[in-house]
Structure formats: C-alpha cells, structure tokens
C-alpha cells in the first residue's frame, strides 16, 4: 500500500530533517574523534580525523584521576544520582500530596515557600551550606552530597508533583476512602501509582541535573575517594596541561549509561512526558 504520496514537498522536508539530524550529531562526532587522538594530534589538528585511532586513550582514561578509577567514579555518580532521585520521588510526592489535599490554609504558604526556593539560585547558598555541612561532617562523602542535592532539588520535585496533583480528579481517592482505605494505603496504593507520569518526569529531570552537575560536586567532593564522574573528568585538566583526548574519552564513558538508558526506556519516557491519567 502506498497511499502516502511522496512528492517534492516531502523530499524537501526530509532533506531538511536529515540536515538537522547531522548538525545534532556533530558534537558526538567531535567527541568520538578527539577521544581517539594521540596526545600530540589533539593540538596539531584538533578538527581532523586522527591518523591512527588510539583505543589506548580509553584505557588511560579508565585509570582515572586522584586515585579514583573512572569505573569507581561511575559507580559513585550512580549511587548519588539514584539515591537522590529516590528521596526526591518519595518525599516530594508525599509533600505535594499534603500540600494539595490538606484542609489547613497553611498549605498555601508551604507551597509558596517551595516556589520561592525554586527561583532562588543555588550558588547564593553555597558558602553557608559548605560551612555547616563541614561542621556536620557531611563534606567529602556520599551521604552529604545526597542530602545536599535532595534539599536543593526538592522544591522542583514538589512543584512538579503539585501541578499534576491539582489537575488529578479527587474521585479515586474518595472511592478509596469509602472503600475503607487509610491515608497511607490511599497514598501508596491509589495516588502514587497514578502519579507515574510525573514521577518519570521528576526522575529524568532531577536525575540529569545531579548526573551532570559540576559546581556542587566540585566543592563538596573534590579530593575525596568518593569523587564522581564530573570531578574525575575535570582531573584530566591540569594546571599546566589539559589532556583533552582523555577528557573526551572519559566523557564518552560518562555518556554511555545515559544513552543506554534512553534507548532502553525511550517509549516509556515519551509516554511519561506526554501522558496524563487514562482510565
């Protein structure tokens, strides 16, 4: 069956989209290319394809920096990201549930508090946070950075959940209430599953922020044995010489899980971003 006509208009559109796709892929091309260059090639001809692709760069990058291998850094990043996202989902959704469904008028103030926290830049609070975290022994370890990110990103998570919950019909909760369910059962058996689309959004958005963050991790984790990927990669940029080929090779490694995850969960993600509640 070929009832879809393929005329000049479609041809132009397709060519245009292919161009966009190529432009989109350019950074990846440079990423892979530079990661394969020898130490001298990087500076001699940064844009040319390497004379010989140096797979050895990946081995050297894998050895890591500051006595932490890239593999360990990868695990550290994963631990911090997964733990933070889990806390954000659990605490964020329960908080938003309370904010949207409580009868007390104080709920509006709590909501405004969270909104203000979103628009306040993190960087403002770095110095006091660092001082107090240091006093509590939360600098240079995973627990500290997890608490830090959970706190910084909680307003965003609550904001997203509140928006969704406000639009969600009360009917399911009311049905559960009449059916004899208590507060916790209503939340975990009825409300939380219905929040799945927004939970996916929260997970992806905050997960990417944590995974990619450099600033906070640089300040709170530098020099520790739990350093994460961004810090490890930064380790290749020395005071006198930057080994860009190793930086790029390490970025390839850091990117791999994200791309893998995307390919694996593509369908679910798109559904999560576009879908509401359907019964």
């Amino acid at each position: 069956m070929s009832d879809s006509r393929y005329g000049p208009k479609e041809l132009v559109r397709e060519a245009l989209l292919i161009c966009v796709a190529i432009v989109w892929c350019a950074p990846f091309y440079f990423l892979v290319m530079v990661s394969g260059k020898s130490d001298t090639d990087v500076f001699r001809a940064p844009l040319a394809w390497p004379e010989e692709f140096m797979f050895d760069n990946f081995r050297r990058a894998w050895a890591g920096t500051n006595r932490v291998t890239l593999g360990e850094a990868l695990i550290n990043s994963a631990v911090v990201t997964v733990a933070t996202v889990a806390i954000l989902i659990l605490v964020g959704s329960i908080t938003a549930y309370a904010v949207t469904r409580a009868r007390a008028t104080s709920r509006e103030w709590i909501y405004i508090f969270f909104v203000f926290a979103i628009i306040t830049p993190w960087q403002l609070s770095v110095v006091p946070l660092y001082t107090s975290f240091r006093q509590m022994g939360l600098v240079g370890n995973q627990l500290g950075i997890i608490i830090l990110f959970s706190g910084l990103l909680m307003p965003l998570a609550v904001f997203l959940y509140v928006g969704f919950l406000r639009a969600m019909p009360m009917e399911y909760e009311e049905a559960a209430e009449v059916d004899g369910a208590g507060r916790w059962r209503i939340f975990f058996r009825v409300v939380f599953p219905l929040l799945t689309p927004v939970t996916a959004t929260v997970a992806v958005m905050t997960g990417l922020i944590v995974w990619n963050d450099f600033f906070m991790q640089l300040i709170f984790l530098t020099g520790s044995d739990v350093q994460t990927l961004p810090i490890s990669i930064f380790g290749f940029v020395g005071e006198y010489a930057a080994r860009w080929n190793l930086v790029f090779a390490a970025v390839c490694v850091a990117l791999a899980p994200i791309i893998g995850f995307y390919v694996f969960a593509q369908k679910e993600l798109i559904r999560g971003f576009s879908g509401g509640i359907k019964n």
Partner: peptide
Amino acid sequence: LAPRDRNFAMVFQNYALYPH
C-alpha cells in the same frame, strides 16, 4: 465519622475504578 468507618459502599457516576 470518617468515611472508612461508616461501612457504606458507593458507586460513583463515572465509576472511579482505579485505572492502574
């Protein structure tokens, strides 16, 4: 009395079946 303690069963206009 809280709804859960009344032991009444309700059928809603659009049923409110738990979609998940």
